[in-house]
C-alpha cells in the first residue's frame, strides 16, 4: 500500500479539476504538465475544467482490479467536456442500458475506492446524467 503522499499530491486535480491552459496556443489540458503537449510552450496558467460534457465512448467493467472488486459491475467512459478536454471516469446513477454515446453528463464528487479496511479513503470525480 502506498503512503498517502501519492494520493495527496493529486488532490487539486481530483477534487477541483485543476488543469493548465497554454498561454500561447490556448490549449487546455489535464492533468497539468510542465509544458504544453501541443506547442511545448512553458508559459502556462492554472484553470479549472468544465464540469459538464458528453459521453464519447464507454464500457461496463465486469472484471475489476482488486481495489474495485466490491463495485463491479460499473461503467467507465471517456467524456468530452465542454472545454474540449477528454476525461476518463466512471458513469454512475443510471442504468447501464441508459448510457449512450452522446449522453449529457456532469461531474459529481464521489468516493472512488478505499485503501483496504484501514487505509485512506480515495475521493475524486465521477459522472452522473445531466
Amino acid at each position: 500500500m502506498s503512503t498517502p503522499s501519492r494520493y495527496w499530491r493529486e488532490i487539486p486535480q481530483r477534487y477541483r479539476l485543476e488543469a493548465n491552459k497554454c498561454n500561447r496556443c490556448k490549449l487546455i489540458f489535464f492533468p497539468p504538465r510542465l509544458l504544453c503537449p501541443e506547442c511545448k510552450n512553458r508559459d502556462l496558467e492554472k484553470t479549472k475544467l468544465a464540469e459538464k460534457g458528453e459521453v464519447i465512448t464507454y464500457t461496463i467493467i465486469r472484471v475489476p482490479p482488486a481495489q474495485f472488486s466490491d463495485q463491479a459491475p460499473y461503467a467507465v467512459g471517456i467524456i468530452e467536456l465542454k472545454d474540449g478536454v477528454n476525461l476518463t471516469g466512471q458513469i454512475v446513477d443510471c442504468a447501464f442500458d441508459d448510457i449512450k454515446i452522446g449522453m449529457k453528463v456532469k461531474l459529481e464528487f464521489r468516493k472512488l475506492f478505499e485503501q483496504g479496511h484501514a487505509g485512506i479513503l480515495c475521493y475524486g470525480y465521477k459522472f452522473v446524467p445531466d
Partner: peptide, 8 residues
C-alpha cells in the same frame, strides 16, 4: 487518471 477510475 485511468487506473484510479477503475479502468482495466
Amino acid at each position: 487518471y485511468e487506473g484510479y477510475q477503475g479502468i482495466t
